[in-house]
Design a protein around this nucleic acid. Structure first.
Lengths: 216, 216
DNA sequence: CTTGACAATCCTGCATACAGTATCGCAGAC
DNA sequence: GTCTGCGATACTGTATGCAGGATTGTCAAG
């Protein structure tokens, strides 16, 4: 591993910045992203911005119209439902495979997260829980050892997250369900872990639907 | 013939060309893709090539190492198995949703493909069958109305295809299974269509595994 | 003959520059 | 008052140039 590998390409920095702006709502869905404006704002040339656009485009966070620039992605209800369905399927594959593989490093990390999460829940540390909830999903994807699955899941999660406009459930509620999944994975009970994950995501999905369409 | 004079965005042309070169084996897995060599060969500047790289990178066809260029993707057996699993899950979602939605245009197209495929199978027209088999999968993805799913499936199929090095089953065998799936979709029998699709992909997967690891 | 270090060369990453096209505003006509 | 056509402007798409790191070849030492 050479020193140069740690050097981060400017396009990656730009992509990360834009991603967080999109996910935290700074850039609203449908808003236009001009190369010039972004490059000026970030103090880089237009080229890294363009390459970052291509990546975000592949992640589904932005949509490109030829000769008309880039916009923050906007999807309809039906597409949102499909994305949730895709995410559920991929998360189930991930949690099963991780529980079956039992990669030692992942298991250690999961134990660490489980411990830290319990403490954070007891202390009522919301921001720590939010971070740990994110770690949870990343670990389950990474535990499969599949770069493809990690990339797909990250992409689908981004889409789902930015479409529903952020968290509709409290970090504590998410955490208690996550903790159960982690315990099942640590006990190598893949089917139980998958069942818990399915229930977890299904509940989230339903509560989001209820929020979005309040009148049945 | 240089494609630099076309009206379509050059990055799309370059990406298409590179994709077909990768899928048909002209560019072998692991081979390095230099910006300069590609741009010179296609008669364009390096910039469209770079942007095409980003897209192929997102599609999983190439892998990028910082400062060390781009290589045609190489995955191990385990990753291959995961990709097949992902593909199966996504195809099942697609076929179910298409059968439930029954989008009229897609249904018409499926009927057309079914008819044309039967004729081609009777005539023994291999190349036509190959094309229709491709149409089959594209239609099932498109019938969901989800651009996200279409993009994901195309990406995963590319990976699976290029990893196993092409077709291991005859177009006729694929076609007969495809035809059954189409009939189930046209009859709005989503569960039957999903079952047939599952069996179809599972059989392909097994025969590929057998080919790759001849000694059990 | 093998191995390690150094240097030349190649290539990637980024910035700047230019051409072509879409968008927007304004003016004039119906 | 509204619609249409023209022009200016801004932005995308593409090309070229340059700096810094990576790769490779060579030479010398063990």
């Amino acid at each position: 591993m050479s020193i140069g590998e740690s050097h981060r390409a400017l396009r990656d920095e730009v992509a990360d910045q834009l991603r967080s702006w999109i996910l935290d709502g700074t850039l609203a869905p449908g808003s236009r992203l001009g190369e010039g404006a972004i490059s000026e704002r970030l103090g880089v040339s237009r080229l890294p911005v363009r390459e970052a656009f291509r990546r975000l485009e592949a992640e589904g966070l932005v949509q490109t119209a030829p000769r008309r620039g880039v916009r923050v992605a906007v999807f309809d209800q039906e597409e949102l439902a499909t994305i949730q369905e895709i995410r559920l399927a991929l998360e189930l594959i991930a949690v099963r495979k991780t529980a079956e593989r039992r990669d030692s490093e992942t298991m250690n990390e999961l134990e660490r997260v489980l411990l830290a999460g319990s403490q954070a829940a007891e202390a009522g540390d919301q921001s720590a829980l939010k971070r740990l909830n994110g770690d949870f999903h990343e670990l389950l994807a990474g535990g499969t050892g599949s770069r493809v699955l990690v990339a797909l899941l990250r992409s689908v999660r981004n889409q789902a997250h930015h479409l529903v406009g952020g968290l509709v459930t409290s970090p504590e509620d998410s955490w208690s369900e996550h903790a159960r999944v982690i315990r099942a994975v640590l006990e190598a009970d893949a089917e139980m872990a998958a069942l818990l994950m399915r229930r977890h995501l299904h509940d989230r999905h339903e509560s989001q639907r209820a929020t979005l369409t309040p009148n049945p």
